[in-house]
Amino acid sequence: MAIDLDRCQGCRACVEACKIENNTPSAVFWMYVFRLEEGTYPDTSISFLPRPCQHCHNPPCVKVCPTGARFHRDDGIVLTDFDRCIGCRYCEVACPYGVNFFNWRKPEQAFADYQLKMDDPDLAAVTGGLIPPYRNPDLDELQGDEQRRTAGSAHYKGVVEKCTFCVQRVEKGLDPACVVTCPVEALVFGDLEDPNSPVSTYLRGRDQFKLLEELGTDPSVIYVGGTPPTPDAREIERPMTGVGNANA
């Protein structure tokens, strides 16, 4: 995936598309967009930085997973087997990008912040009580050659999840939800090894960087049109990111 920081408006449409496509509960941001600020008034600068899972070629999370629940597919996508994860959260501490999310709560609790009242009889009559009501059935399917439950599904309590590059869409030949929705087309998806793929074409001849390249993780998310965030960057406009902190 290529991300053009020169285009990104920081609108977080990708964040929202991801949440809806993958039915993630509140405070879970498989895709996240930093809104950053540096400098002192009036020499202030603002920048935006989308942060999906970096799907590293040398993923620290895969290396440390004790049960092989976190694995690296041949096509480069790093996935979690939700049936195998034991919830030790080692992947989460090993990942320098902070892309992992543990299901601290049961799904119905986790969606409670979204005020969806799944047990509401009037609503259940329409949705069959699904959690969430816009539940995507593709997530329940087993994915890929490995036929594993890797696409998010019910966000079981006690397992770790993260961005899957929308494996359920990629398997059908579609781009990830974040890429499709980006209003300014700042995200480009494709096979980096294929020189004719849209992403390779997009990257050709542009200055690039990868996040925390010095760690040797070799991410397959490549940023163009900007510079890596400096350690002085301060986050502004943070969403509500705690669990159970909605205005209930």
Binding site: A27, F29, Y32, G87, R89, E92, V93, C95, Y97, G98, V99, N100, F101, F102, N103, W104, R105, K106, Q109, K157, G158, R238, P239, T241, G242, V243, G244
Partner: peptide, 20 residues
Amino acid sequence: TQGMVATGMRDLGTMQGATW
């Protein structure tokens, strides 16, 4: 019963917690 939400641990990153 409640899930590990009952602990003080939270996710790294956006949740700004410690997961261990």
